[in-house]
Design a protein around this nucleic acid. Structure first.
Length: 351
DNA sequence: TCTGGGGTCCTCTGTCGA
DNA sequence: TCTGTCGACAGAGGACCC
């Protein structure tokens, strides 16, 4: 029996969760976005999307496009709780569940006798127990399932073979499939390849000449909806970071140092609480021209406390000596491991 | 209209030791 | 002893995702 994978994607998740506690806003354009002058839209309701508002758009632009929109500040603790509720319902139906973020999951259905009927029941069950809508795609691999779940949102339910996906999306832009982002779309366009069908059928040497043999082959696999990546329940956390974009750019090194110290404290409090530590300390700096720079140092032993991480981060910042005003500052600890021989399971992210 | 926060993974390059 | 090669690793940048 071949593989059978479902992708479950909650519809406009953050907005839908907000509407549960504010039902009077149903039917109105609701936009979850940060409050600062440089914040972006996290999620927009389908009513707001009709005004051209979309995820990752600057909130200021969203306000101009949709002045009558209801803007809500994100409440991630509330969304996490809603996500736990949804995923608990999913796990009650399916054994192998790979959770992606708060609102998505891949489900391995190969052992399920009637997977399509089971997924229809699951969507209804999520609606009944949480009041939230979802879209589900089912296919022979994660790639087909993912694109299928996106195809008819909201409350979509699409079942496809790989061949059907190839036919249905042959004329779609290459950026439709995950892993082909805006930059790659541009490079493909420069080769005259605008659609998935064109990319899938292009001579491999031509793609390899532009993208290298590995990435080139990978792009063509995706265009043909070929994907053998497993549905894996556990994702290993390899790094943790805290970063902050300032409302206004900062020039003074002393102010940056003080903010860096706060970020280190926030990061290390979390690491210590989770009994994790790491060997590589890094900083991230985005300048006012939006160029991003990272500096890192790997220590001989893993650390987690602010008084060990702080001085390293500070020295990296001083050595970089930002040549222009700074818009974002971040700190990161990578190469994470358990702090005290604790079980390896502590490194696993089980959302 | 300028572009968040928190992640993963890949590529390229330089260094170092076997 | 010198030189070339190779792999591992670290560092930096970038693409991409939710």
């Amino acid at each position: 029996m071949g593989r059978c994978v479902a992708h479950l994607d909650m519809d406009a998740f953050y907005v839908s969760v907000e509407l549960r506690r504010r039902p009077e806003l149903r039917g109105r354009p609701v936009i979850v976005a940060g409050t600062g002058p440089r914040s972006v839209v996290t999620t927009a309701s389908y009513e707001a999307r009709r005004f051209g508002v979309g995820s990752a758009m600057p909130a200021a632009r969203a306000r101009r496009l949709c002045p009558q929109g209801v803007f809500l500040a994100p409440d991630f603790a509330y969304y996490r709780e809603a996500s736990r509720q949804v995923m608990a319902t999913v796990r009650a139906t399916v054994d192998t569940v790979e959770v992606i973020g708060l609102d998505e999951a891949y489900l391995d259905l190969h052992a399920m006798p009637e997977p399509v009927a089971a997924m229809r029941r699951l969507a209804a069950e999520i609606d009944r127990t949480t009041g939230l809508g979802c879209s589900i795609g089912i296919g022979p691999n994660k790639l087909v399932a993912k694109v299928a779940s996106d195809a008819e949102k909201p409350r979509g339910f699409v079942v496809m073979t790989r061949e059907q996906a190839c036919r249905r999306f042959a004329a779609s832009p290459c950026g439709l499939v995950p892993g082909i982002g805006p930059k790659t779309v541009e490079r493909l366009r420069a080769l005259g390849l605008e659609t998935l069908g064109a990319l899938a059928g292009a001579p491999p040497p031509r793609i390899a000449a532009r993208f290298g043999p590995r990435l080139g082959a990978e792009l063509q696999h995706r265009a043909r909806f070929e994907d053998d990546s497993p549905v894996s329940q556990e994702r290993k956390v390899v790094s943790e970071s805290r970063e902050l974009t300032f409302d206004q750019d900062i020039r003074e090194l002393e102010r940056l140092e003080a903010i860096l110290a706060q970020l280190v404290t926030r990061l290390c409090d979390g690491l210590v609480a989770q009994r994790r530590r790491g060997r590589t300390i890094g900083i991230k700096i985005r300048l006012d021209d939006f160029s991003t720079h990272t500096r890192a140092r790997t220590l001989t032993e893993a650390v987690s406390s602010a008084d060990r991480v702080g001085p390293v981060a500070l020295e990296l910042l001083r050595r970089f000596a930002p040549p222009r005003p700074v818009r974002l500052l971040g700190v990161r600890v990578a190469g994470l491991e358990p702090a005290d021989g604790a079980a390896v399971e502590q490194l696993r992210l089980v959302v």
